[in-house]
């Protein structure tokens, strides 16, 4: 009887540990995995070619409301900080390439929009929820990662961007 209770207790505690929310994996502190993607303008861009600059990479999806809301904010950030050395890249992860391109063209943002229809980049960057925004420093290290977007939320990026541009 005692052994049964002991085993039951162990099983229960293991189940509780498994169900408790673990910290979401993050790329912060790690080297940003390199990628090359085709842009809306037909040019191919490779992340590693921006080494030496601060890069903001925004993974977005046309079907996600937060992604659509975030793009104008990122556009303003790009216009403001581009001359200071910031590079903003938008990466669409939609499967429907045609509709994604139509949407991106309609948004008319000033930064490059790239299109990824594969799964490798998503796995490399541990993409779980859209939109996801990361900041890569001049050495190619991911220094900041954020998931989701609320109106006014770009203020947090600005603090991080200014800090990285000062380095």
């Amino acid at each position: 009887m005692r052994n049964t209770l002991l085993v039951g207790g162990l099983v229960l505690s293991a189940a509780l540990a498994a169900s408790s929310p673990a910290a979401a994996p993050t790329m912060v502190g790690k080297e940003a995995p390199d990628f090359a993607l085709r842009g809306l303008d037909g040019r191919n861009l490779r992340l590693s070619e921006f080494r030496g600059q601060v890069v903001l990479v925004n993974f977005w999806s046309r079907s996600d409301g937060d992604s659509r809301q975030q793009m104008p904010a990122l556009d303003r950030i790009n216009i403001t900080y581009q001359r200071a050395g910031l590079v903003v890249l938008g990466v669409s992860v939609d499967d429907d390439l045609r509709r994604s391109k139509e949407f991106a063209a309609a948004m008319g943002v000033s930064y490059p929009i790239l299109f990824d229809t594969g799964t490798k980049i998503g796995r490399d960057y541990l993409l779980q929820k859209m939109p996801m925004t990361i900041l890569v420093d001049r050495s190619g290290i991911v220094r900041y990662s954020a998931v989701g977007f609320k109106s006014g939320g770009e203020r947090v990026y600005l603090d991080q961007i200014r800090e990285l541009l000062r380095e």
Binding site: A36, L37, R38, R43, N44, L45, R46, E49
Partner: peptide
């Protein structure tokens, strides 16, 4: 499958 940038 390798994509070439203008620089490459």
């Amino acid at each position: 499958n390798y994509l070439y940038t203008a620089r490459e």
